[in-house]
Amino acid sequence: MKDIQQPGASNTVAIVGAGLVGAGWAVVYARAGLKVKVFDANPEITRKSIPLIEGQLAGLHRHGLIEEDPATILSRITTASTLAEAVEGVTYVQESVLERVDVKRQLMIDLDAIASPDLIVGSSTSGIPGSAFALGLSLSPRILIVHPVNPPYLVPVVELVPSPETSAATVEFAETLMKAVGQTVVHVRKEVEGFVLNRLQAVLLREAWALVDEGVASCEDIDKTVRDGLGWRWSFMGPFETIDLNAPGGVADYAVRLGPLYQRIAASRQHEQPWDETLIKQVETQRREHLEHGDLESRRAWRDERLMAFAAARRSTHPEG
Rank of each mutant, 00 (worst) to 15 (best):
M1S: 14
D3E: 14
P7Y: 09
N11L: 09
I15K: 00
A26F: 00
V28R: 04
Y29D: 02
A32L: 08
K37D: 00
G55N: 12
A58S: 15
R62L: 03
L65A: 09
L65I: 11
I66G: 03
A84K: 13
A86P: 01
E88W: 01
V97M: 02
L98H: 10
R100W: 01
D102P: 05
V103T: 03
L107Q: 00
I109L: 14
D110Y: 08
I114A: 06
D118I: 04
V121N: 01
G122P: 02
S123L: 06
P129M: 13
A134Q: 03
G136Y: 01
S138D: 14
L139W: 04
P141Q: 05
R142N: 00
S163C: 00
P164E: 02
P164I: 02
E165K: 04
E165F: 01
T166K: 03
T166E: 00
S167L: 07
A169K: 07
T170F: 00
V171C: 12
F173A: 04
A174V: 07
A174F: 03
Q183M: 06
K190W: 10
E191C: 11
F195N: 04
F195I: 06
V203Y: 13
V203F: 13
E207I: 05
V212G: 04
V212E: 02
G215K: 01
A217S: 11
C219S: 12
I222M: 04
I222K: 03
D223C: 12
V226I: 15
V226N: 12
R227F: 12
S235Q: 13
M237R: 10
G238Y: 13
G238P: 10
N246C: 13
P248K: 09
G250M: 02
V251Q: 08
A252I: 05
D253T: 07
L258Q: 09
L261M: 10
Q270A: 13
Q273N: 11
E284N: 12
T285M: 10
L291Q: 12
E297P: 05
R300Q: 13
R300G: 07
W302C: 09
W302N: 11
R303Q: 11
R303V: 07
R306P: 00
M308H: 03
A313F: 04
R315P: 07
S316T: 14
E320M: 10
